[in-house]
Amino acid sequence: MRYHICLSRSVDLSKFHRDAQLDQCPRHTMWDLSQELDATVHHPDAKAVTWIDRRLAKLTSEPEHWALARSLINKLTANDLVFCTGEDVGFPLAILAGFKANRPKLVVYILEPKRLRVRALLKLFRLAQSVDLFLTNTQLKADYLRQYLQLPQEKVHVVREQTDVRFFCPGPVTLEKQRPLIASAGLEQRDYKTLAEATRDLDVDVNICAVSPNASAKTRVAFPEVMPSNMTAHPQEWRQFRQLYRNSDMVVISLLYNTYSAGLTTLMEALACRRPVIITRTPGLTERLIDLGVVTGVAPGDATAMKQAILNFINNPELAEAQAQRGYELILQEHTSEAYVQDLVCQFKQLAEHRACFHSDGNTLNEPLKAAPLPTSTASLNPLNPS
């Protein structure tokens, strides 16, 4: 079996690996996965885009994702297994695979299965027939996918959240603080307006690493109209960012209400650095960790409750330390990048060994699937062999 990894955006994994070896940044799990599987990594390339990709992108994804899917589909056979790191790159390949007889095994990670466009595409193109394994990051999302697509248990897998505990780990404080320091990070679904309101009158400093690898013009983030004098927000390089966690007395992850598990990357990093965490309660893993007492939760938009949680940690340092230790132990037990990679390797190899299973409609995996036709606006296009 030949393994492939299709990335949603172009990333220089080799440079990530070199820098990680020098402790310049965390390791990239897709580099580690590619080494474990001897997989070929494919990147979207804007230079490969043609007019047909721009037309197909009206359905979903970006033109470069369609260009990547078209460049791969005719090279892939039943002896290939392809892991797509997001629906943006996975759906174009799955749609094209529906028109192919000797199709590859497809694994697609879905972050937001309840989004209208995601749900529509899943049904319109019967993607449950061309995707062999769906991955997502919470049990709630997995249950929804199984119910919505009527999938058996084994076709949806919940992947663990992870962080690189070699990079994000406890370390010495390097800052001479005059008062408690609160750290925060990220842009996706962040509610810094509530954090500002909660801390405006407190004798604390708030330092925000305002950067997100997935941020775009559509990113939802709420900043206060006027930044309080005790709050700063700016990007930081990796080691400076790690030291922010280590220097902080606590990490506060203030979120807008969302159902796709925003804030989990920051949560994993903070716990790995053995910092106590206050986070907005949202469905999924965050809610479970709050209920377990691993982190402290507050309701969305509740600045008063957030302020009280912050004061509780400041006034009870032994409580903050005990919670930080519980979180740190949980990370080491369940959420390391090594465990994440091995979980994926196990899932992919198990899938690769079961070529004789059947789809629910009776088609074997190597038969052409009865895919729905393309919508009228693109019915004249041949996505596999454009002129």
Rank of each mutant, 00 (worst) to 15 (best):
40 T>R: 12
41 V>E: 00
44 P>E: 01
45 D>N: 15
45 D>R: 15
47 K>W: 11
48 A>N: 11
50 T>A: 12
52 I>T: 13
55 R>E: 07
57 A>R: 01
60 T>A: 06
62 E>K: 15
62 E>R: 15
63 P>L: 00
65 H>R: 05
65 H>I: 13
67 A>Q: 05
67 A>P: 09
68 L>V: 08
69 A>F: 12
71 S>P: 14
72 L>R: 00
79 N>H: 11
80 D>K: 08
80 D>Y: 10
81 L>F: 07
81 L>A: 06
83 F>D: 01
83 F>I: 06
84 C>Y: 12
84 C>H: 10
87 E>S: 14
89 V>H: 02
91 F>P: 02
91 F>H: 04
94 A>D: 07
95 I>G: 08
97 A>H: 06
98 G>A: 05
99 F>P: 03
106 L>V: 03
106 L>P: 04
107 V>E: 00
108 V>R: 04
109 Y>H: 09
110 I>E: 02
111 L>T: 15
112 E>C: 09
113 P>D: 14
120 A>I: 15
121 L>N: 08
121 L>P: 00
122 L>W: 12
124 L>Y: 11
125 F>P: 03
127 L>G: 00
127 L>A: 06
127 L>K: 00
129 Q>W: 06
130 S>N: 13
133 L>H: 01
134 F>W: 11
134 F>M: 14
135 L>Q: 10
136 T>I: 02
137 N>I: 13
137 N>V: 11
139 Q>D: 13
139 Q>R: 09
140 L>A: 15
142 A>D: 10
148 Y>I: 05
149 L>I: 02
151 L>S: 01
152 P>H: 02
153 Q>M: 06
154 E>S: 12
154 E>V: 10
155 K>F: 04
157 H>V: 12
157 H>N: 07
